[in-house]
């Protein structure tokens, strides 16, 4: 599920010391392109689909897409990370929506951002 960056939403992480997707990518794949100042995955085929960049992006500018050889478009899976949980939204190719809230950290359940 390689990452694709939506140009209008990516601001190159201005203000961060290093763009977050570039900081975290385990495969060293996310880079900021010189002319645009926006992030791009340098080789989508090398991505392992761990989704770390997608979860970290402060502007939700990264959309993870499944390889077309394996599945149809235009389904989407969107994670939104809170302090103690991730809210996942799965939108299938027909627009049907499912939502999942997954715990991330143990701790006082009351404090969770639900």
């Amino acid at each position: 599920m390689p990452p694709y960056v939506i140009p209008d939403q990516c601001d190159g992480c201005q203000g961060e010391r290093e763009p977050l997707c570039e900081l975290v990518c385990p495969g060293n794949l996310m880079v900021i392109e010189e002319p645009t100042g926006k992030a791009v995955c340098r080789d989508v085929g090398d991505c392992w689909d761990c989704m770390t960049c997608t979860k970290y992006c402060p502007r939700q500018a990264i959309q993870t897409r499944i390889q077309y050889q394996l599945a149809f478009v235009p389904g989407k899976l969107v994670p939104v990370v809170g302090p103690h949980s991730v809210t996942w939204t799965l939108i299938d190719c027909h627009g049907h929506v499912e939502r999942f809230i997954m715990r991330m950290l143990a701790g006082d359940e009351e404090e969770e951002d639900l």
């Binding site: 599920m1 499944i66 190719c93 027909h94 999942f100």
Partner: peptide, 19 residues
């Protein structure tokens, strides 16, 4: 599906995109 989101989210998207 929820269980797989914690280990291999791609599979959940794959299911969603292949009905």
């Amino acid at each position: 599906k929820a269980q797989y989101l914690d280990i291999s989210p791609i599979l959940v998207l794959y299911w969603g995109c292949n009905d």
